[in-house]
Design a protein around this nucleic acid. Structure first.
Length: 273
DNA sequence: AACTCATGCGAAT
DNA sequence: TTCGCCTGAGTTT
């Protein structure tokens, strides 16, 4: 499921499976009209920026733009399985097949159209070309809550609801702290931590944010195995005791999404200048 | 079997 | 601010 790490991982998987190979491309569901135009062409490579995925083909100016939205998924299977249900885009080289279901976006875009999307996106911690200082400057210019800013894809691309809650917990920052009240140092630390956490997410395919000393084994509690697959401090743990201080984790809608935090570990005013 | 909710976001109101 | 997309997993009936 899709925060930025998922898309970067997917880009790697698509490139590894299909890069430089001639691909059968189709839309069994029929809703990706451009799919047929790419049939029997050579896939060049796929790359991600934030939660957006772009797939390029040799000798084709357009790139396929994919956004998974809340419940889109891209799944790989060996061989060429029967199509079941609604498959928006099927890619196959005969030995591997990838099926895309339920995306918000799947469309061939011209270079100009791609540029419009990229222009709206802030720096992506998972990209080598990311501009950390642009992120810091943008946050320092805003009165909005840091929890809202971290979800704003024009401020930082790729962070979603799990990473925002977890990174704020890891830094002991009250989610409602206005961006402009944070220190440069705190923001640089948040960025560095996101680079670390999200790279690990790309590697493992899950979101794990719990430090070694707070792991279940270290603290004598059973592992969690939530539906996102990893160990977390506060995400969806509302009402349960904080792993560190025992205080019940709180939840509240911030930036149109459920935010989770520990009021004792992330006190008001902390993390501020 | 039915229902609820979700790692997202753009369009409509 | 609310709606709705179109899917899957977990929970409730």
């Amino acid at each position: 499921m899709p925060e930025g790490h998922t898309l970067h991982r997917l880009a790697g998987e698509l490139t590894a499976a299909f890069g430089s190979r001639v691909i059968a491309s189709g839309s069994p569901q029929g809703r990706f009209v451009g799919a047929a135009m790419l049939d029997d062409r050579t896939l060049d490579h796929a790359e991600a920026w934030g939660k957006h995925l772009f797939v390029g083909f040799v000798g084709v100016a357009e790139q396929v733009h994919v956004h998974l939205g809340l419940y889109g998924s891209f799944r790989f299977a060996p061989g060429v399985p029967m199509v079941t249900g609604q498959v928006r885009w099927r890619l196959s080289d005969g030995s591997t097949t990838a099926d895309l279901r339920g995306p918000t976006a799947c469309k061939a875009l011209t270079p100009d159209e791609v540029a419009v999307i990229l222009d709206r996106l802030g720096p992506d911690p998972l990209r080598g070309d990311a501009d950390r200082d642009a992120f810091v400057a943008r946050v320092l210019r805003s009165r909005a809550a840091i929890a809202t800013l971290l979800m704003d894809q024009s401020v930082i691309a790729g962070v979603g609801n799990v990473y925002r809650a977890e990174v704020l917990f890891r830094h002991g920052i009250d989610p409602l702290t206005p961006g402009r009240s944070l220190s440069v140092l705190a923001l640089e630390a948040i960025w560095a931590d996101l680079v670390l956490l999200m790279r690990e997410g790309v590697r493992t395919g899950r979101i794990d944010t719990v430090r070694p000393e707070h792991e279940p084994e270290a603290m004598g509690r059973p592992p969690r195995q939530d539906d996102h697959g990893g160990e977390v401090y506060v995400y969806r743990r509302d009402g349960q005791p904080c792993w560190i201080c025992g205080e019940p984790v709180l939840t509240r809608v911030v930036g149109a999404r459920n935010l989770f935090w520990c009021p004792r570990c992330q006190p008001s005013g902390d993390g501020a200048r």
